[in-house]
C-alpha cells in the first residue's frame, strides 16, 4: 500500500493498471453497443419525425398562438348556454354510471364462465375468454363509433360502448378474483349438500363481492374519464358539446368546458378513493 495521487498517475502507471484490469477501462465492444443504441434511438426519432412532416410546426406557430390566445380570453360569457354544458357533464356521468353498472351485472355472470374453478368445461371457457379478448381489443372509442352508426347519435350509443368494453375487462378481472378465492370455504358450503347455484351464492359470492365492488367503482372512475371523449364521435355526453363548439371556433368555451370536466373528474377520483378506503377497506377485512 503506497500513497498515490491522481497527478502522480503517469502513462506507465495507466498502462500497468490496464494490463492487470483491462475490463475496468471498458471494452471496445461494450462502448460500441452503448453508442449504437443511443445513435439508433436518436436517428429513429429524428427520422420518424421527418417522415411525419415535422416542418409543419414552422408554419403553424402563428395559428398556435392565436388558438392559445383565443382559449384564454373569455368573451361574451353570458351567452355560453351553461345549461347545455352542465347537462352534458351530467349526461357523461350518467353514461359512465349506467355503462359500468350494466357491465358489472354482465360480468357477474360471464366471470363465472371464464374462471377455471367454476367452469371446468375447457372449450366453453376458452370461447368465453377469447370473446372477452375481442371486446377488450377494440378500443372504447371504436365501439362508440360503431354504436353511433347502429343506433344513431346520442348517449345510448355511449352507454353501449362503455357497457361492451367494460364487460370485456371487468369479466376478466372478476374471473381472476374468482380463481383466487379460498377453496376451503366453498368446500364447507358444498359439504352441507347445497346445489351448484347455492354453492356460488354462499361459497363464492361472499368472498368475491368486496373485490367486485371495488373493481366496479374503479371502473366507474375510469369510465367517467373515457366517457368525456365518447362524444367526439357522437356518442353523447360532454364530448359532443366540446366538439360542436370547437368546430364553431368557440375556443374560449372549449377551454371552459375542459376545465369543468377536469374539476369534475378530480372530484370523482377523490370521492371514489374515499368510498373505497372507507367501505371496501372495512368489508375486505
Amino acid at each position: 500500500m503506497t500513497a498515490a495521487t491522481l497527478a502522480g498517475i503517469g502513462p506507465d502507471e495507466i498502462a500497468s493498471v490496464r494490463r492487470m484490469h483491462p475490463e475496468a477501462f471498458g471494452t471496445l465492444r461494450g462502448k460500441l453497443v452503448q453508442w449504437a443504441v443511443w445513435v439508433g434511438v436518436i436517428a429513429y426519432v429524428i427520422g420518424s419525425l421527418w417522415y411525419f412532416d415535422v416542418w409543419k410546426f414552422a408554419y403553424a406557430s402563428d395559428r398556435v398562438w392565436r388558438l392559445i390566445a383565443a382559449m384564454f380570453t373569455w368573451k361574451d360569457m353570458e351567452t355560453w348556454r351553461y345549461a347545455d354544458i352542465y347537462t352534458g357533464i351530467a349526461q357523461t356521468l350518467a353514461m359512465a354510471f349506467l355503462g359500468t353498472m350494466l357491465a358489472s351485472l354482465a360480468a357477474l355472470f360471464i366471470g363465472f364462465f371464464a374462471a377455471r374453478n367454476t367452469m371446468p368445461f375447457g372449450p366453453l371457457r376458452h370461447l368465453v375468454r377469447r370473446m372477452l379478448d375481442v371486446l377488450r381489443g377494440v378500443d372504447q372509442l371504436i365501439w362508440g363509433l360503431v354504436f353511433v352508426r347502429a343506433v344513431g347519435l346520442g348517449p345510448l350509443a355511449g352507454v353501449l360502448a362503455i357497457f361492451v368494453s367494460d364487460t370485456g375487462t371487468l369479466s376478466k378481472l372478476y374471473s381472476e378474483a374468482i380463481e383466487n378465492i379460498d377453496r376451503k370455504q366453498v368446500e364447507g358450503v358444498r359439504a352441507t349438500g347445497a346445489g351448484p347455484i347455492k354453492v356460488v351464492r354462499y361459497g363464492y359470492l361472499p368472498q368475491v363481492l368486496p373485490v367486485f365492488i371495488s373493481q366496479s367503482l374503479y371502473f366507474f372512475e375510469s369510465s367517467t374519464r373515457s366517457a368525456t371523449i365518447l362524444g367526439l364521435v357522437g356518442a353523447g355526453g360532454i364530448g359532443m358539446i366540446i366538439i360542436e363548439r370547437f368546430r364553431a371556433n368557440l375556443f374560449d368555451q372549449v377551454a371552459f368546458v375542459v376545465l369543468n370536466v377536469l374539476v369534475c373528474i378530480f372530484v370523482i377520483d377523490w370521492l371514489s378513493r374515499k368510498v373505497r378506503e372507507r367501505f371496501i377497506g372495512e368489508t375486505a377485512h
Partner: peptide, 21 residues
C-alpha cells in the same frame, strides 16, 4: 395527463394540420 390524448389531437390538428404529426 388530465386531458385525454384525443382532445390534444383535436386541438393540434387544428393548429398544425391534418396528419400523423
Amino acid at each position: 395527463r388530465g386531458v385525454p390524448e384525443i382532445l390534444y389531437a383535436l386541438v393540434l390538428v387544428f393548429a398544425i394540420g391534418i396528419g400523423p404529426l
